[in-house]
Simulated scan of single mutants.
Amino acid sequence: MSGLPTAVPHRLAGRRVEVPGLLDVGGQGRDTAEAVRFLRECAGLGLRVSWRAAGQPSYDARALRHLPPPDELPGDHEELAAWRSGYAHGALYHRRGPGFVTVMDRREPGTAARLTLDHPDLLAAFDLLLDPTPLDALDPTGREAAGLLAAERLALVTGGWAVALPPRIRRWPVPCTAI
Rank of each mutant, 00 (worst) to 15 (best):
L122Y: 00
D131W: 05
T111G: 08
P109I: 12
R143K: 11
T116L: 05
P120I: 04
P98D: 15
L130H: 12
T133P: 14
R95M: 09
A146D: 02
P134I: 06
G110N: 06
A151F: 09
P140Q: 01
G90L: 01
F126Q: 15
T116P: 10
R143S: 08
P120S: 07
A145Q: 02
R107E: 01
F100V: 08
D121W: 09
R143F: 06
G90F: 03
P98I: 11
H89S: 00
L123Y: 02
T141W: 01
T111R: 13
M104P: 02
G110F: 11
T116N: 04
L129Y: 05
A137G: 14
G99W: 15
A150P: 06
V101Q: 14
A88N: 00
L123K: 02
L130T: 11
L122A: 09
T133D: 03
T133A: 01
A113H: 14
R95D: 07
T133G: 04
A88S: 02
A146R: 15
P120V: 04
R143E: 12
R95Q: 13
L148M: 09
A137W: 15
P120H: 06
H89L: 04
V103R: 06
L149V: 08
D121S: 15
L135A: 06
D121M: 10
L122E: 04
D121Y: 06
D105C: 07
P140D: 03
R96N: 09
E108A: 15
P98N: 14
R106P: 01
R96S: 12
L115H: 07
L115M: 09
G99K: 10
P132A: 00
E108F: 03
V103F: 02
H119F: 05
E144P: 06
D118R: 08
P134R: 06
A146G: 13
L138W: 03
P140M: 00
F126N: 14
